[in-house]
Design a protein around this nucleic acid. Structure first.
Length: 569
RNA sequence: GCACUCGUAGCUCAGUGGAUAGAGUACAAGUUUCCUAAACUUGGUGUCAGAAGUUCGAAUCUUCUCGAGUGCACCA
């Protein structure tokens, strides 16, 4: 049930005779819009069809509008009026009956409401290094990605959530070494070395203790001897920690892909081979980067991928100076792996600090797939924390960064999830602890949950929601009631736009607006008993029916956001 | 220097190429013996950073300028 499609279809049918008359191709006019005008004086829905049509047919838009109007009025008797306004808009105003009919026909499932091509989608997100717990920076991308996945699958796509474990390379070596030295410290009282490359934080000590407790490695005398085993154990520890943190905010990945495994399987060779055959691999020297001081820079011949052929700024190195593969080379392999698993669409969610990496990912995916693989990258900008009006400084080196776990423990999963998608991903986000902990309208999370709780409290008093006829809904004739129905009719539209633009924040805004309408509705009861949703008259069934539909939409929205629908607060 | 993102009301931000650009907050005044006041009502705000262009029509698209954030061989 999507009124926008209904009206669009109606217009399509209505212009059919005109297409013949003016001898134009339907394709030239099919991208007309049907939308809700900003200004209420312009009716409930508005279309620019006549303007588009007149442009193609080179005729007067107002006259075309008149002709279309005649056709439309033949077909829809629930119209109150169709106005034609300069420069050629058709503005529709519907009778209340139209809205009652919509509400009455509204079903739990909106599955028929989305005119999309269903896709098999691979969504990679989080993919934080397994060298420590998740912090606030990861959290936004994690929730953005998860909400997006929920949204895309809600409207009918098949979505896999994937986490790429960067369990390979220097960082991992330093991490394992850090665990190693903590174990020596615990077991043999050897002092932890003062090396800036090592990870000093306390969680390393916890990992060390756990590994000692497992007693799998008996002898820690030589680092190189225990490295492989210790690495597996250490990464296992952090990944469990990360998975646990993620589960606290309701995130569960379908698949974890290990970088080490990709390396073992020699997929890089295969990827390099493909690119070589396309002449996209060469030995060359990259220019010195400008703007930030690189002390130890020297011109160096390296194996390069010609990513500039695919829109990147410079070509990218595939081998390090020690002749081992770069991180990007492994990522190349990972993307080949993704391509071979045959998805219609790949989505990568990146943090702002990795945005510079985006072009080369897209470049290599296009290169490896002959431009056939569709890939989209979404970048989440930084989160800034505020407490007592002051920005919270975070420095990872000192180990005092705010972890995701800190955040959840302090404000709860619902608040974190909601607030992280209460902004477009493209903008920086201020996360204010004081605001988010307040139990008032300032706090949008409570505002929407409170609306749901109020509805629940009414529905608890109703023993059985009776099946209503459309005529029974005639009682819904207040402005606010009609406005609520209109808002509900926008729900599938909201979901579709959110999904098409990969912008889940539209959902939080919508839920806020719907909740606001409901709170207004509820408060009418303060004016008089007559206006209460439940009252002594027996006309309350239609009102209960209405709020049960609000409840349905809120519940669906909460489901996509994965926040709790609270019956009581 | 280059790339990406942002710049809209005092503040925090929405805004599918559409018409007179919207919310919240702050500020002020009111609403509760009554379905949960964690709520509601009523009040006015704009050089959509600036300039040019495309268009019947631009906050939205293009180019340039200014300002803010992020990143910039080999790390991950």
């Amino acid at each position: 049930m999507n009124i926008f499609y209904n009206i669009k279809n109606l217009i399509r049918e209505s212009i059919e005779p005109l297409i013949g008359k003016y001898n134009i191709n339907f394709k030239e006019v099919e991208n007309f819009t049907v939308e809700i005008p900003k200004n209420k004086n312009y009716g409930d829905l508005s279309s620019n069809i006549a303007i588009i049509f007149s442009k193609v047919s080179k005729t007067n838009p107002l006259l075309i509008a008149e002709e279309i109007k005649i056709q439309i009025c033949k077909k829809l008797n629930l119209l109150n009026s169709v106005d034609i306004v300069k420069p050629g808009f058709l503005n529709f105003k519907f009778k209340n009956k139209f809205w009652h009919t919509f509400l009455h026909n509204l079903k739990e499932s909106f599955s028929t409401s989305f005119d999309i091509k269903k896709k098999k989608i691979l969504l990679e997100f989080v993919s934080a290094n397994p060298t420590g717990p998740l912090h606030v920076g990861h959290c936004r991308g994690a929730i953005f990605g998860d909400t997006l996945a929920n949204l895309l699958s809600f409207i009918g796509n098949n979505v896999s959530r994937e986490y790429y474990i960067n369990d390979y390379g220097n960082q991992i070596t330093y991490f394992v070494k850090s665990v190693y030295y903590r174990i020596l410290e615990l077991e043999k009282k050897k002092k932890f070395p003062n090396d800036p490359d090592l990870y000093p934080s306390n969680y390393i000590i916890d990992i060390a203790k756990n590994i000692i407790k497992k007693n799998i490695i008996k002898n820690f005398d030589n680092f190189n001897d225990v490295f492989e085993n210790l690495k597996i154990l250490s990464i296992d520890e952090t990944m469990n920690m990360i998975k646990n943190d993620l589960s606290q905010i309701g995130i569960k990945h379908d698949k974890f892909i290990s970088e080490s495994n990709l390396v073992k399987k020699n997929i890089i060779d295969k990827a390099i081979d493909i690119l070589s055959k396309k002449n996209l691999i060469y030995d060359g020297v990259l220019p010195k980067p400008k703007g930030n001081e690189v002390d130890d820079w020297e011109p160096r011949k390296q194996l390069l991928f010609k990513s500039t052929n695919f829109g990147d700024d410079i070509d990218r190195a595939l081998k390090k100076s020690d002749n081992s593969w770069t991180y990007f080379a492994n990522d190349l392999a990972y993307h080949l792996d993704k391509i071979e698993r045959k998805y219609d669409l790949l989505i990568n969610v990146l943090g702002a600090d990795h945005a510079g990496y985006l072009k080369r990912q897209i470049a290599c995916t296009h290169a490896l797939s002959n431009n056939r693989q569709e890939i989209i990258s979404k970048v989440c900008q930084l989160v800034k924390l505020y407490k007592n009006g002051e920005p919270l400084k975070m420095s990872k080196r000192a180990g005092d960064f705010v972890t995701l776990k800190n955040l959840i423990d302090e404000v709860g999963s619902d608040v974190v999830r909601f607030m992280m998608v209460y902004r477009t991903n493209d903008s920086e986000l201020d996360f204010d602890f004081d605001l988010v902990k307040s139990q008032s309208k300032d706090n949008p999370v409570y505002y929407v949950q409170y609306a749901y709780a109020r509805i629940s409290s009414i529905l608890r008093k109703v023993k059985k929601i009776q099946a209503l006829k459309i005529e029974d809904l005639d009682e819904l004739d207040n402005d606010i009631e009609i406005n609520i129905i209109k808002k509900i009719s926008e729900w599938p539209r909201c979901l579709e736009l959110s999904a098409n633009h990969y912008e889940p924040h539209r959902i939080t805004f919508y839920l806020y607006e719907l909740s606001s309408l409901f709170h207004t509705y509820w408060n009418l009861g303060n004016e008089s008993n007559e206006l209460k949703i439940l009252n002594s008259n027996n006309d309350y069934n239609s009102r209960v029916f209405l709020i049960s539909k609000i409840e349905m939409v809120l519940k669906q929205g909460f489901g996509i956001l994965n926040i709790k629908a609270l019956d009581k607060m």
